[in-house]
């Protein structure tokens, strides 16, 4: 009896092995490896409603992948960077400077897969030097010896890129300004300027260009929420374009997951334009596939900046 039972169990085993061997894989195999999708999102940005609106996005990605989606909210730049670098999350939306930081930590274990291509075909945005409209400052030269607010050490448009452009224009940002400090975020930078903490602050500016003006950025979002009045501010200097933020994935996740999530996100503006708008993306824009090469200039820039700081050349 025992021998016959053993034979049946062995047959079951062989049967299962046979099932597994006949098909190269099975539908749903990668989902059982992943069990859930963990996405990092920035919270407390210029629009606190964004997290609530991300519910529809979460539902869309969940349906597309067949997995529950968990959003991990981080209130600062470094939180998202470390969550992705440590593998606590599978995927994150992250600016070029943040991706450069991740790349420096884990290299090929993270890969940018998509970025936004605007209706006009551009894939970049700008840094703006913002001052109060009633201030006497008309150009960056007027700010010699004055106080400047940066966004965050890991911010591309709020630190890394504009400093490079200043140096290219003969301005050493470490000595030109009287004092500079980090506000901690784009919203905080605008608030600090509005409160008189800085004479000028660096912010992100998008949805346009220096010639035609901008329509997106922290001060626009804050104005639409009634927190500030746009007429109180002026942009006196710009730097860019800077490569748009990337969707970055961990490459040690199953390739079918990477393909599925890339496909679902790329299809979003066509499949569900309302969700596309809900996550703050402009009409007419869409995702386009990118590689590490797209961010190579930012990666180089960050490496140079850190090397200069370590050598004591820069503050």
């Amino acid at each position: 009896m025992r021998r016959r039972s053993g034979a049946i169990l062995a047959a079951i085993g062989l049967g299962l092995a046979g099932c597994g061997g006949e098909a190269k894989t099975t539908d749903g195999a990668w989902q059982s490896q992943m069990r859930e999708v963990r996405m990092a999102v920035r919270g407390s940005e210029d629009d606190p409603m964004i997290t609530r609106r991300l519910t529809a996005y979460k539902t869309y990605i969940g349906k597309a992948t067949g997995l529950p989606v968990k959003l991990y909210e981080s209130s600062d730049f470094n939180g998202t960077i470390q969550a992705l670098s440590s593998g606590q999350v599978d995927i994150a939306t992250i600016a070029g400077g943040g991706y450069a930081n991740v790349d420096a930590q884990i290299g090929d274990l993270a890969q940018p897969i998509l970025t936004v291509r605007q209706a006009e075909g551009d894939t970049g945005y700008y840094s703006g030097l913002l001052v109060m409209a009633d201030s006497p400052y008309r150009s960056i030269q007027d700010l010699k010896g004055k106080t400047l607010g940066y966004v965050d050490f890991n911010s591309t448009s709020g630190y890394l890129f504009p400093r490079k452009m200043m140096r290219d224009q003969g301005i050493d940002p470490d000595t030109f300004f009287g004092r500079s400090s980090f506000a901690g975020g784009h919203t905080q930078a605008v608030m600090a300027l509005d409160n008189g903490q800085f004479d000028a602050t660096i912010i992100q500016a998008g949805g346009g260009d220096p010639e035609h003006g901008f329509t997106t950025g922290a001060h626009f979002t804050m104005a639409r929420r009634g927190v500030v009045d746009l007429d109180d501010f002026r942009i006196i200097w710009t730097a860019g374009p800077i490569p748009n933020s990337a969707i970055v994935v961990r490459t040690d996740r199953p390739q079918p997951f990477i393909d599925a999530v890339r496909g679902a996100m790329a299809a979003l503006p066509y499949d569900d334009p309302e969700v596309w708008r809900d996550i703050g993306q402009p009409d007419g824009a869409a995702y386009t596939a990118v590689t590490r090469e797209h961010y190579a200039p930012i990666i180089k820039l960050r490496a140079e900046d850190i090397a200069a700081r370590r050598s004591g050349v820069r503050q």
């Binding site: 539908d27 749903g28 989902q31 349906k63 597309a64 992948t65 067949g66 897969i113 998509l114 079918p256 990477i258 393909d259 599925a260 999530v261 890339r262 496909g263 679902a264 790329a266 299809a267 995702y287 386009t288 596939a289 990118v290 590689t291």
Partner: peptide, 18 residues
């Protein structure tokens, strides 16, 4: 078509040029 296959097909094709 299943969502899984449709989105994977799209995900593969949009990056094919790279």
């Amino acid at each position: 078509i299943s969502d899984d296959r449709r989105f994977r097909l799209i995900g593969i094709h949009v990056a094919l040029h790279n």
